[in-house]
Design a protein around this nucleic acid. Structure first.
Lengths: 166, 166
DNA sequence: ATTGATAATCTCAACGTTGAGATAACAACA
DNA sequence: TGTTGTTATCTCAACGTTGAGATTATCAAT
């Protein structure tokens, strides 16, 4: 069998036989998978009236444990977006009543973002179905393949310095 | 060793022990890798005065072989973006003199987008260094790991229907 | 030839992110 | 105490994508 990336590699081999394009077999597939999975997740969350990024922020707060609050900076790093994007996201989640800004008494530069009761129940209701949906998307992988893939991806992430959510 | 995703999985295991979040170990890593690699590629292309998407379009035309032209729709599907985005990209590449729109005589609904001479030399000069740069990013993988990872990712892509660039 | 369905591209307003700069607060130290 | 450097967040204009709709062309069937 072959996928879209095999065809791309075949084209390069024909047009530029002097270049060994093997890295595209990894990078290209990661990029395409990310896009495809993103579309699927978008559709899934739309069924709950949520944007993907909304769930992402809420879930980050939820899994941090009680009192379900993090600084804007921590959310920032977790989401891998810029500070401007996080300010915007917090604004909109706060407008929807899913999070609230709490002044940080220890460090007045910081803003703590806290899940509201509604925000917490929202995540808690969706996380189960969400994981089930992801499992469905990965259903073609057997148990050993899952593990092997996770190990390889982890090694790559580590080598690129992604070793901590801070 | 552990990466950022291991920490996320650990948080879920603590907060929601009833949910087995293993799929996040795959989906989360693919998403994070995609973002990290994207940043690296962005920096790389900036060194050549190009945007990542610019190289992407030019390379798609180049690897299709002489006469280095494709319809807007084909570029569209290859880039996995919407039609509006491709119209915009072609406009800007044409303004830079890297591609040109050629009317399709067979099907007057179609527009053929052709690499200009400057566009072709641009890709041909950069593709070698680009692949070398990607190889650098993947340097932590041994030969067997590269192959194993490519096989697993291909299987996943196939199962999600990404079997053709059309 | 006409009709209806399908297809390719373009248009454009809404949306979200980026990235640089502004503001305010903290930290270290002379 | 004042100074310098660093950190956290917010601001905002520029940029690019999305997605629905408009336009024009092709195809199939009658």
């Amino acid at each position: 069998m072959s996928d879209a990336v095999d065809q791309i590699l075949g084209q390069w081999a024909r047009e530029r036989p002097d270049v060994d394009a093997w890295p595209m077999g990894i990078v290209g597939r990661i990029t395409r998978l990310s896009r495809l999975l993103d579309r699927e997740l978008k559709d899934f969350f739309a069924g709950y009236g949520l944007e993907h990024w909304e769930f992402d922020v809420l879930a980050t707060l939820r899994r941090s444990g009680p009192p379900y609050e993090l600084t804007a900076g921590a959310l920032n790093r977790a989401a891998m977006v810029t500070s401007g994007a996080i300010t915007n996201r917090i604004d909109r989640l706060a407008a929807k009543g899913l999070v609230e800004r709490v002044p940080d008494e220890e460090d007045r530069r910081s803003v703590r973002v806290r899940l509201t009761e509604r925000g917490r129940t929202t995540v808690d209701e969706i996380v189960g179905p969400h994981v089930a949906n992801e499992a469905r998307l990965l259903a073609s992988l057997g148990p050993d393949e899952r593990e092997g893939l996770a190990v390889l991806l982890r090694g790559l992430l580590e080598s690129l310095g992604d070793t901590s959510i801070r």
